[in-house]
Design a protein around this nucleic acid. Structure first.
Length: 480
DNA sequence: ATAGGGTTAG
């Protein structure tokens, strides 16, 4: 069996790096390596880890090269590697763990950790760093990440600290994250960005902006990188009121002044920020200057239009998006269905719901069903709405029943409202607003007796009637 | 003699 020389290994690596972006190229090179025997072993000489590591890395940077069904290409390669007797080394695991993180597979992360331990590689600083990150990203308790961190060789470096900081944030332990951040011997832009995004993700948008201000003071005059700007814009987008918009506009000014390239990532954050604050004009013009728009960028635009009374525009932009050959995803269809529901475009909405499942193979979430039920309910098509609910692959939650209840109120369908009221009673007894709606339906129908009885039921359930809560926007019903 | 880690949008 011919073995590639070290000389050709360098060429191999360069080749794979040059073609990271092209799934077809990565596939071709993969095939070439297979047929050339580089990936194989023979009794005298086991296969080398190096070509596997390069190829794994290429696949990781090029997710489209992977088949749609799990496991992802890097994990398949790992299995192939073991089967052919190539011994994974310290360079193999960071890439593999990153792949496990990307696919959110807790099982893969745990299995890879076991492999690292068996091979005595778990304390390597690169491997440990990836382990911490993988545990954080795949939903393990923060304790697992902490244990790897504590057992690292020598003192943990900055990257390992940042990985643990992220893991603490992802585990929802924001107090621990804050304390850990305070105690770090050194911090870089990644540390600050991790905390900003962690706080924002946890709903503490104002805190996130406070931390960002601390970062500005700490790094006087140093240029802000894309990830930081994106995290801050995300916090701004989700912070209601003038403060979010004001800081967001300041970040926009920074981008313009420093001529920061408006990548799809940064552009999407900017479009979303203006969209969430209802500044549709700014949102559309920001969209116009994004260099290479991606599905996410369109999603931010479509959601903004759908949520601010520009339903027709949203559908026009949706057409433009598809004309560019971009594949709509769950978020795209949510925006489209919401636009249809709000504009009362029943047939158009039903058409896209069907196309979403059949043509685009996008699996509907609860919110998509909620839109369809809303759509049918508002048109008074209760039989069909109920059939949709019955055929859902999971039990309808309060948001779906709430959408139907809104339609009952609109069309005076008292009998169905009573049924739904009972379901909601068991689903979310802590929410009083919707019960007030039900009672109002009775009262408006002239059914004073039922209305009064509803009041009694509510009191029995321990629900206090609040003044001023009699009208509730149904889309705002909180999903527990 | 040849590779690997931490942060970012809907």
């Amino acid at each position: 069996m011919r073995r590639a020389s070290p000389y050709s290994y360098a060429a191999l690596e360069r080749l794979l790096q040059e073609h990271f972006r092209s799934p077809r190229r990565v596939f071709q090179l993969h095939a070439l390596l297979l047929t050339s025997g580089v990936l194989l072993s023979d009794p005298q000489c086991p296969a080398a880890a190096f070509p596997y590591n390069c190829l794994t890395h290429a696949h990781l940077h090029c997710p489209a090269s992977s088949s749609p069904d799990p496991p992802p290409a890097p994990l398949r390669l790992f299995a192939a590697m073991l089967a052919r007797g190539a011994r994974p080394n310290r360079h193999s695991f960071p890439t593999l763990l990153k792949s496990a993180s990307a696919s959110g597979s807790a099982a893969a992360a745990g299995a890879l950790h076991a492999q690292c331990l068996r091979r005595g590689l778990a304390a390597d600083r690169f491997v440990a760093c990836s382990l911490i990150s993988a545990y954080g990203r795949t939903g393990h308790p923060a304790l697992d990440a902490r244990k790897v961190f504590d057992e690292m060789e020598g003192s943990p470096d900055l990257a390992a600290c940042n990985a643990l900081l992220d893991a603490l944030c992802l585990a929802g332990d924001l107090d621990a994250a804050g304390a850990f951040f305070e105690g770090m011997a050194a911090r870089d832009a990644v540390s600050w960005t991790t905390l900003v995004s962690g706080l924002s993700r946890g709903g503490h948008h104002r805190c996130a902006l406070e931390v960002f201000r601390g970062f500005l003071l700490d790094s006087m005059g140093r240029r802000l990188v894309e990830a930081t700007l994106v995290s801050v814009l995300s916090a701004c987008a989700n912070l209601d009121g003038a403060e979010g918009l004001t800081v967001g506009m300041a970040v926009h000014a920074y981008i313009v002044r420093h001529e920061v390239e408006l990548t799809a990532f940064l552009g999407t954050a900017l479009v979303d920020m203006y969209g969430k604050h209802g500044r549709i004009g700014c949102c559309v013009s920001a969209f116009g200057i994004v260099r290479r728009t991606e599905v996410c960028t369109w999603n931010a635009l479509l959601s903004a239009l759908a949520n601010h009374g520009k339903e027709a525009e949203a559908l026009v932009e949706f057409d433009r998006m598809r004309a560019q050959g971009l594949l709509p995803d769950q978020i795209t269809f949510l925006a489209v269905l919401m636009a249809c529901a709000r504009a009362g475009l029943v047939e158009v909405g039903l058409y896209w719901f069907e196309a979403m499942v059949v043509v685009y193979k996008v699996t509907p979430l609860m919110v998509h069903y909620g839109c369809v039920v809303d759509l049918l309910g508002h048109a008074g098509r209760f039989v069909e709405a109920i059939r949709v609910i019955e055929r859902m692959p999971f039990a309808a939650d309060a948001s779906v029943w709430g959408a139907l209840l809104g339609a009952c109120k609109l069309h005076g369908n008292v009998d169905l409202a009573v049924e739904i009221g009972q379901k909601l009673m068991s689903l979310v007894p802590q929410h009083s607003g919707r019960f007030v709606i039900i009672r109002n339906i009775y009262l408006e129908d002239g059914n004073w007796h039922a209305g009064a009885r509803m009041g009694e039921v509510m009191e029995e359930a321990g629900i206090k009637k609040k003044v001023g809560q009699s009208s509730v926007v149904l889309h705002d019903i909180a999903v527990p």
